[in-house]
Design a binder for these strands. Sequence first.
RNA 1: GGAGAGGUGGCUGAGUGGUCGAAAGCGAACGACUCGAAAUCGUUUAAUAGGUAACUAUUCGUGGGUUCGAAUCCCACCCUCUCCGCCA
Length: 425
Amino acid sequence: MLDQKLIRENPTSVGESLSLRGKVFNISHIHELTVKKKDIDIEITSLQSKSKKLSKLIGQEISKSKNNDSPELISLKKKGNEYRIKISELEEKQRILDKEVDDEIYNLPNFPSKDAPIGKDESDNLQIKTWGDPLIKENIKSHWEIGESLNIFDSVKSTKISKSRFITLTGNGARLERALINFMLDIHTKNGYLELMPPALVNSESLTGSGQLPKFSNESFKCSNDDLWLSPTAEVPLTAFHRNELIDSKQLPIKYVAYSPCFRREAGSYGRDTKGLIRLHQFNKVELYWFCHPSKSLEAHKKITSDAESILKKLNLPYRLVDICTGDLGFSSSRTFDLEVWLPSSKCYREISSCSNCLDFQARRSSIRSKIDKKNTYIHTLNGSGLAIGRTMAAILENGQQKDGSVKIPDALVPYFGSNFLKTA
RNA sequence: GGAGAGGUGGCUGAGUGGUCGAAAGCGAACGACUCGAAAUCGUUUAAUAGGUAACUAUUCGUGGGUUCGAAUCCCACCCUCUCCGCCA
């Protein structure tokens, strides 16, 4: 969430900064509302001040005279009553204004960082570097073909259980998924992250705090009988873990790693990536999350990205690092580095991790502060996948495929998986 | 699901209509003592909004209401805990 004061005092620059996202943000209406709100606030404050003084006076008079019915007192009370009526009228107006401002401000995205490449969409993202040699060969099989022949997952039967875009991992597939989760958690915890296993169902306040609501209500599954949603990413519960807290600044940075299942409606993606493990309604993910001192978040952003990268390196999967352009940035992010893994069957890199610096955007929405230089200050939050498990499995299957139909398991993963090759069971 | 208890500052916890933004303790900050530290003693210490500041206002789970005046009374809702029931 953006700072209301900034909108009120500097509407032009707020509008300009937001418009770097590639579309026009007209904030003149919300600006007008915040100004009106301020005027009413001043009026209410002065009336309250008078009314408060009057009440004190009445209290003193009563205790002095012991007479509640003197004409002087009655006239004072009448005066107080008039204040009360005026104040409650103004408060009603203020309530309406507050709601109108909230409706707009919660729908405004974060400012893009000045360092992010300026661009309109995906095509303007900037490749920073590549790592490893992308496998380019004839007769490459897709991961779903490999999966089918090795019998490690079943999407057809899964539609019986749920619907399309759900998958059941079987045998070695399930084992590989489990191995990947443990492998990633072990590396990150050794690297100074505290492991959390949060609830998979989250309330509306949590989703609002991290930026998924109110704008993207269409993208999460909702439990209609309760104020609960299936969490689309562990970023949501991890942000909410410290909601409404004043964190001792000596504890910063706080670094969490969490495995969680993630649920997304994938509305509007009909027909895209319908096969395999790339785009599912439910997938597993290991998420990295930092709460950090506002002056340290640029540094932290590099670190969280390289922590995610280290998994790809250990698994020996070719990837590239992409600097997301202003037009392609997520709602809460000011700067995002994507890690994209090479998928030889589609001859392209696919997103496997997204590492974002949200600055104080989520902290303001969630009220997470620290006393810094004697002042309570919103801290900065960062998140990054470390990594998406299903897509990692897809990459291992495709990059490790052998002539005989088996798949080579990356050396680092062998102790977790228990075998050097994945073969038909 | 049924019955009961409760939600107060960074934390614990007192406060049932009038100088209560709130006792006390813990924690924290600063100072004294010390070569240094611990212990001890002293001082300070809630947040938010507006204002350069003095200051003003709001906030005792949330939202309404009664009243000149509400942490305190009334109504609704949310949440937590205990017991019973059900249950992985």
